[in-house]
Computed example of a mutant assay.
Amino acid sequence: MKKKRLDEKEIIRIFSQALGIADLDDVAKVGRNLVFKADMLVASTDVPPQMSPWQVARKSIVACASDLAAKGARPVAAMISLGLPEEITRTYVEELARGFQIASREFGVKIVGGDTNAARDLVIDCSMIGMTAADNRMPKRGGAKPGDVVVASGKFGYPASGLAVLLKGARAQGAFRAAAVDSALEPKPRQAFGITLARYFSSSIDSSDGLAASLHEIAVQSNVDIKVDYDAARADGVQEFARANGLDAHELVFHGGEEYEIVATMPKSLLPRARATAKKAGCDLHIIGSVKKKGTGRVTSGRRLLENRGYLHFS
């Protein structure tokens, strides 16, 4: 009988129990406003073949910057550790360096050092330090309350559609193709959204593991049920793209992953102030659902019960 392979969540659960980490979240806050984050990129599981070396390096920084943004934290400094295959070329390494330089300027983070070693696959580990505002309470995953609205920094389905084009030969044209492929190769973390709006959030999470999986994390840790509006969450053109290529649009929107939007909940009474703040910061704020009564961590869309799955390493 074939043994079931451990997935990423199960592995994290084992270590959390062994180390006594009860409050699982994307980042760790130390003291009043210091925030830590680490994220690892592995080429064989995280990098489409069409991604340029500089885009690979940039993506490794995006992952940390996005998680910090979801908690209202601004990146300050990072250390980068590299595992490099022996066949890697000087040109590739120089392009990686250029990508780190681009990301450093783009996200306002100073790269202060790191480590290198030999590896069978390209591995980039980013450890980042950020800071919240001194008076800012950092929202966690487990803080959603019945009656809250679910908001997001953007809509969903572009990265999964872009990966379908790049990896599976799906057909797309014009502006939709450009937006979908760009979102897969050069994801845009929503720093302004998180940094300016986090004070309104009752809970928040970065959606890189997929919208459904992210909402499940909030629902389970908050002990609530969440209802999400598929039409409000779906990016323009995804339905038509899915139909033209024989794909499931719900799958692209809810379970595709590799998105770096911020998903959060907030009291309905704070929406007018949040909207005004978002407008002033030049951010979009989308209402995509609502938090229901205390429950068992169910996430539904219409009559559909959404599975707790998205992008998982080791799967």
Rank of each mutant, 00 (worst) to 15 (best):
K2Y: 10
K3R: 13
L6S: 07
D7I: 13
E10V: 03
I12C: 01
R13A: 15
I14L: 15
F15H: 05
A28F: 15
K29G: 10
G31K: 13
R32M: 04
N33I: 04
F36H: 11
A43M: 10
V47A: 04
V47C: 06
Q50G: 01
P53Q: 07
W54A: 06
W54Y: 11
A57W: 06
S66T: 05
D67K: 15
D67C: 09
A69V: 03
A70D: 02
G83L: 09
E86M: 11
I88G: 00
I88P: 00
T89M: 06
R90I: 00
T91K: 09
V93E: 07
Q101R: 10
Q101A: 11
T116I: 15
L122M: 09
V123Y: 12
T132V: 13
A134F: 15
G143H: 10
K145I: 09
S153E: 03
G154T: 04
G154A: 05
K155F: 01
F156Q: 02
V165R: 03
L167Y: 07
L167F: 06
Q173D: 14
E186N: 10
P187L: 09
K188R: 12
A198M: 06
S203C: 02
S204C: 07
A213Y: 10
A213V: 05
L215E: 04
H216S: 03
V224I: 12
D225E: 14
I226Y: 10
I226P: 02
K227G: 11
V228Y: 06
Y230A: 08
Y230F: 11
A232F: 04
R234W: 05
G237L: 08
F241T: 04
D248L: 06
D248Y: 13
H250W: 12
H250G: 13
E251R: 13
L252P: 02
G257L: 11
A264E: 02
A264K: 04
T265I: 04
P267W: 15
K268A: 15
L271M: 15
L271D: 02
A278L: 04
K280F: 03
G282S: 02
H286Y: 08
G289N: 05
G289I: 09
G289A: 08
G289S: 07
K292T: 08
G297P: 08
R304D: 12
L305D: 09
N308K: 14
G310F: 10
G310C: 06
L312A: 10
